[in-house]
Amino acid sequence: MPKRVMQGAVVSSKGDKTVVVNIERTFKHPLLKKIVRRSKRYHAHDESNQYKEGDLVVIQECAPKSKLKRWEVVGEGSKG
């Protein structure tokens, strides 16, 4: 089964080898037919502590590394 890959902005890098990434998605509401924005924060593993707040990163699903970390940073994201 392929691993999920998502792109988002780092909102916190205070933990050791951990970054918190905010993923924002948009979808059309089934009843109201309006575009709705929803966001969710994921804890991701950053082995080298190289990403800071505001960086755009790509995260990928992985085996559990701790209580909250089920994602790992695989690279930098691109705008657009």
Rank of each mutant, 00 (worst) to 15 (best):
I23S: 09
D55W: 11
E47A: 06
L32W: 13
N49M: 03
N49W: 06
V58L: 05
I35D: 14
H43G: 09
D55T: 01
K52C: 13
I59V: 03
D46R: 02
E53L: 12
E53W: 13
N49S: 05
S39W: 10
E24W: 03
E24V: 02
R37M: 07
R25W: 04
Q50M: 07
S48R: 12
I59H: 10
K34Y: 05
D55P: 14
G54N: 13
V57C: 08
P30C: 00
V36I: 07
K28F: 05
R37A: 06
S39H: 14
L56M: 08
K40F: 11
H29R: 01
Q60P: 10
P30A: 00
K52H: 15
N22L: 14
V36R: 02
Y51L: 02
K40C: 11
K34D: 05
K34M: 04
K34L: 03
N22D: 15
H45N: 05
I59F: 09
D46W: 05
T26N: 04
Y42F: 15
H45F: 08
R25H: 08
L56N: 10
S48P: 10
D46Q: 03
L31H: 06
K40S: 13
S48K: 13
I59D: 08
G54P: 15
L31Q: 07
E61N: 06
R38M: 09
K52T: 11
S39I: 02
V57K: 09
K34N: 04
R41M: 11
Q50L: 07
Q60R: 09
N22G: 12
R37K: 14
D46H: 05
S39F: 10
N49V: 00
R41G: 07
E53T: 09
Q50D: 13
V57T: 03
I35M: 12
V57R: 10
R25I: 01
V36M: 07
H45T: 00
G54R: 12
H43Q: 14
V57N: 11
V36G: 03
R38C: 08
E24P: 06
Q50Y: 12
D46G: 02
E61Q: 11
Y42K: 10
Y42C: 09
A44Q: 11
D55M: 07
T26F: 04
R38N: 11
E53R: 13
T26V: 01
Y42M: 08
D46V: 00
H43C: 13
I35K: 14
Q60H: 04
I23K: 09
R38D: 08
Y51A: 01
V36T: 02
N22V: 03
I35C: 08
